[in-house]
């Protein structure tokens, strides 16, 4: 009684698939984030280098991390929605 969700949850046949995809994309982003922290800490001067339209690596990499998160989120949502529609067809989902 105490531990059921506020809104009744439907059975989701795609949850394992989504969890695996989520972990893969998490590690992908994590590696790129670690790359940023690594350059900032161990090769700070490299951050000064202009890489796009005269703008330095620090700005491009930092803004790139933000934009990449948004793009990755959209890709993840698209793939998950597709898989949910495929695996949770009427009759299969409760």
């Amino acid at each position: 009684m105490l531990h059921e969700p506020a809104a009744k949850a439907e059975k989701d046949n795609a949850s394992d698939w989504k969890a695996k995809l989520g972990i893969k994309l998490f590690w992908l982003y994590c590696l790129i984030y670690m790359g940023f922290v690594g350059i900032a800490v161990f090769a700070t001067e490299a951050m000064k280098k202009p890489v796009l339209a005269g703008t330095n690596l620090a700005i491009i990499y930092g803004m790139g991390l933000i934009i990449f998160a948004i793009v990755l989120g959209l890709i993840y949502n698209h793939l998950c929605t597709k898989k949910e529609d495929e695996l949770n067809k009427s009759g299969e989902a409760e």
């Binding site: 994309l25 982003y29 994590c30 991390l65 933000i66 998160a69 993840y76």
Partner: peptide, 14 residues
């Protein structure tokens, strides 16, 4: 800004 936003990746994917 970068760190706060990156944290949402953990929220979304995990």
């Amino acid at each position: 800004s970068i760190g706060y936003l990156a944290g949402w990746i953990v929220a979304l994917f995990v």
